[in-house]
């Protein structure tokens, strides 16, 4: 059959890949914050599995590990929040300074 192919490369994309390709680029600090958050959530999502795996090794070892992972996630979130806030402050300072220079007489 002749006609215009809508997918000439023949590749199939998942919905997630399409969403990622159209997402706006992030600034360095935002990207850093997102990576840190993803690492934290990834660690946490593994926690129940770890708990189950190591549960039989000792009475509270699974619980202790989960507790430690949650504490770690909270710490990472706090750091992420700090970087994000500092980044916002820096940007607003820069924007205000440039605005003042433009209006300088």
């Amino acid at each position: 059959m002749s006609g215009i192919s809508v997918n000439p490369s023949g590749q199939n994309y998942t919905a997630q890949q399409l969403l990622q390709s159209s997402a706006p680029k992030e600034s360095g600090w935002n990207k850093f914050g997102r990576i840190v958050s993803n690492v934290a959530s990834g660690v946490l999502s593994g926690a129940p599995i770890l708990g189950k795996t190591f549960g039989g090794l000792g009475a509270d070892s699974g619980f202790d590990q989960q507790y430690e992972l949650i504490r770690l996630q909270q710490e990472i979130q706090r750091n992420s929040q700090m970087y994000s806030t500092i980044s916002n402050v820096s940007k607003s300072k820069h924007d205000a300074a440039m605005s003042a220079v433009r209006n300088f007489k």
């Binding site: 500092i86 916002n88 402050v89 205000a96 605005s99 209006n103």
Partner: peptide
């Protein structure tokens, strides 16, 4: 745009207790 946003972000930073 001339400092108000900076004041707000600094205020938020202070309120966060960081």
């Amino acid at each position: 745009e001339s400092g108000g946003n900076m004041a707000k972000t600094v205020k938020r930073f202070l309120e966060s207790g960081l």
